[in-house]
Amino acid sequence: MPVVDLEPCSDFTDWQPVARHLLTDGIPPEQVSWCTGPAQDLFAVDDEVRSPGYLPEQRRATPLKVSRRFVDLARFAASHSDPARFDLLYRLLWRISHGERELLANSLDPMVHRANQWAKEVGRDRHKMRAFVRFREVSLRDVSTPANPEQTAFIAWFEPEHFILNLNAEFFCRRFHNMDWSIVSPYQSLHWQQQQLYVGAGSDPSQVPQQDALEDYWRCYYAHIFNPARLKVQAMCREMPKKYWHNLPEAPLIPQLIKTADQRTRTMLAAPTHAQGKLPENTRFRREAWLAREDSGESDNR
């Protein structure tokens, strides 16, 4: 009975070669024991995901080519934090290769439903990571490279829900191709230095810079861009869940902004905010004069 040992944070790239190997050897899912992490045996078959159609005697030729749709689904679902994912994905793979070719189109099948759910959660987490990673700039006084003459690097701390760093590596590499950056999470870290990607161990928040020169500007911008006459806190929390707040530099402003919104609106309506002098009347736009200037052929060269 094959026992497969995978790290808790393994994803598709670790699972795929194993699954392919097992499939080629014709080993059915019931006989595989997937272990993620120390002393955890997840062999126990979960009743609600038992495949009803599988008969042990049937041994078809296992094609090594699998549909794009399955690969895309597995690539995401395999990054989920649920330890049962490798077992389920292999069961799906087995079923698809043994007579249920269109299985994934049946979204009501319990296994498909769960895999889709995982993929959806991973997709959402991945998107939120692209949105909420916040870099801080550090200067690297003694390190100067041709690609990085200013000697700075950008470091971010992020806490994803699932093991998604690898799924976002290419995005950050493309966007920040010409700057050195690192994203550090509890389970893994990515480092981009001189157009090379390095994958490192996880760490803790004390290892990243605690300040940044522009963060005050960002907070200032955040505080001033919203309209206090329109509060929609529920909508905000739905898209920017509180679980991310402790790593967002603008989040500490939110309680105060909400509390003062009503007051600010009323003050704004009651009186002018600043007693500045009005602009001189002769600077007002005179459209006819403006059009006449153009018509008279006066040059606009400056």
Binding site: P228, L231, K232, V233, M236
Partner: peptide, 19 residues
């Protein structure tokens, strides 16, 4: 250079209390 865009949806990096 710096920066990328995609053909689809943009990314909302933050949300204000007005939703």
């Amino acid at each position: 250079g710096i920066g990328s865009t995609s053909g689809g949806m943009g990314i909302c990096h933050s949300y204000a209390p007005d939703g």
